[in-house]
């Protein structure tokens, strides 16, 4: 190899291609989601999860820190769990997870749908599905 990969510009590495960018996005969004999940887990413990929630409830909150996810627990005061701070955290997790997940569905579909027209239809449907999920999810988070 005449040039080390590290010294190549983004363009030379081929990262201008949409699929390559999404390959990187899938990995980085996963790291972002781990950070948010860990953040929600620590937040739950700070807000009193240790005495009032079981392991499955804590995990459920961590994977999506929306107040409706802790309504069935022994927590007495749900107010700290419903602040705009947690709604913002939940929104960030929702947007990352939806983009990550819908792209994953497109990758799986591409393994079975091989015609150009079919793939275009999948992409169009994925954009509609992703937008709908994001809007509905945000509405649920901010109105619950």
């Amino acid at each position: 190899m005449k040039t080390k990969t590290k010294t190549l510009s983004l363009k030379e590495r081929g990262l201008t291609n949409f699929e390559s960018i999404m390959w990187v996005f899938t990995r980085l969004s996963a790291l972002g989601m781990y950070a948010l999940i860990l953040f929600a887990l620590i937040g739950a413990l700070v807000m009193g999860a240790r005495n009032n929630m079981n392991l499955a409830d804590v995990m459920r909150w961590s994977f999506m820190p929306n107040v409706t996810h802790v309504e069935g627990t022994d927590l007495q005061d749900l107010e700290p769990w419903a602040t705009p701070f947690w709604k913002l955290t939940a929104s960030a997790l929702l947007l990352l997870a939806t983009a990550h997940g819908v792209h994953g569905l497109v990758v799986i579909a591409d393994d079975y749908i091989v015609t150009k027209r079919g793939r275009n239809v999948v992409r169009l449907l994925s954009i509609v599905f992703m937008t709908a999920m994001m809007l509905m999810g945000l509405w649920i988070i901010w109105t619950s």
């Binding site: 409706t68 997940g101 994953g104 569905l105 799986i108 599905f129 999920m133 509905m136 649920i140």
Partner: peptide, 19 residues
């Protein structure tokens, strides 16, 4: 893949139902 697909289907239904 099964995990990703499972989550996509179940979470989409859950979001729709909550909406």
């Amino acid at each position: 893949r099964i995990g990703g697909l499972g989550m996509a289907v179940l979470i989409a239904v859950h979001i729709l139902a909550s909406f």
